[in-house]
Amino acid sequence: MPRKPEILKVTPVADSRLFHVEAVDLRFSNGEERQFERLATRGHGAVMVVALDEDNNVQLIREYAAGLDDYILTLPKGLIDPGETALEAANRELQEEVGFGARNLVLLKNISAAPNYMGHSINVILARDLYPSVLPGDEPEPLERVTWPFDDIERLVTRDDFAEGRAIAGLFLARLYLQQQADIS
């Protein structure tokens, strides 16, 4: 495995309410020097929840995505608040966004979207044994809850309005986990 590049300098480039852009000057093990730009990580992390009800339906939300200027179908997700664990944050977000809590929460994997350009990652959580529970959220408008048969996720991922790569990965991680659990039983 190659040796990690030496970080020579990190310089702030731009700041906004959501993003902090840095220029990173690097020296690679072969002596080559380059400058990369990256979105720096802030906060305490994030969660995305694959919530399965008693009928094996996955709970989805339809929300406005400013980056695409359109409404998308995706999994519930949100930031981890200070002092929360990933599982606590997942249960809170589930209650805020779809109106269910979960008695059974499992961390499946921490995944990244574009590791060459940003340090942001998200914890994919499987939530089962759901019960009705609503918490007030911070969304600017009510989210539409959509249920989808988990056994039919192949058709879901081909829909034009379900295109978030992290959500697609989350569904397949959940399916793999559940298949492995069934094989153990």
Rank of each mutant, 00 (worst) to 15 (best):
E141F: 12
K77S: 01
Q95P: 02
E88H: 04
I80K: 03
E96D: 08
N110T: 15
P76Q: 11
D81P: 00
F100C: 12
L75K: 00
L108D: 09
L105D: 06
K77T: 00
L73Q: 09
W148R: 04
Y71M: 13
N91L: 02
P142A: 12
L108V: 12
A90S: 06
S133I: 01
L94P: 01
V106L: 09
L126D: 07
D81T: 05
Y131T: 04
E93A: 01
S112E: 14
I111R: 02
Y117K: 06
M118Y: 07
E97V: 01
T85F: 09
R145T: 15
A90V: 05
R128V: 04
G119P: 09
Y71P: 03
F100M: 14
H120Y: 14
L107C: 08
I122N: 00
L108G: 09
V106K: 06
A89K: 02
V134T: 13
L108A: 13
N104D: 15
G99I: 05
L75R: 00
G137L: 06
K109L: 10
L75P: 01
A114E: 15
N116V: 13
F100I: 03
P136H: 05
L105Q: 08
N110F: 07
S112H: 12
S112R: 14
I72L: 13
V124R: 00
A89W: 05
T74F: 02
E96I: 02
L87G: 07
P132L: 11
D138F: 10
A127R: 00
L79R: 12
D69S: 14
Y131S: 05
R92T: 04
L75Q: 04
E141G: 01
Q95D: 04
L105F: 08
R128K: 15
L94M: 09
N110M: 13
S133Y: 10
S112Y: 07
L105H: 06
I125S: 00
A89F: 12
A86S: 15
V134Y: 06
D81N: 12
Y71H: 15
D129M: 04
L130E: 03
N91C: 13
G119H: 07
P142G: 05
E93Y: 01
N116W: 13
L135D: 05
N91V: 06
W148S: 02
D129H: 04
W148Y: 10
P142C: 09
R128N: 10
D70A: 15
I125W: 02
P142I: 10
N123M: 12
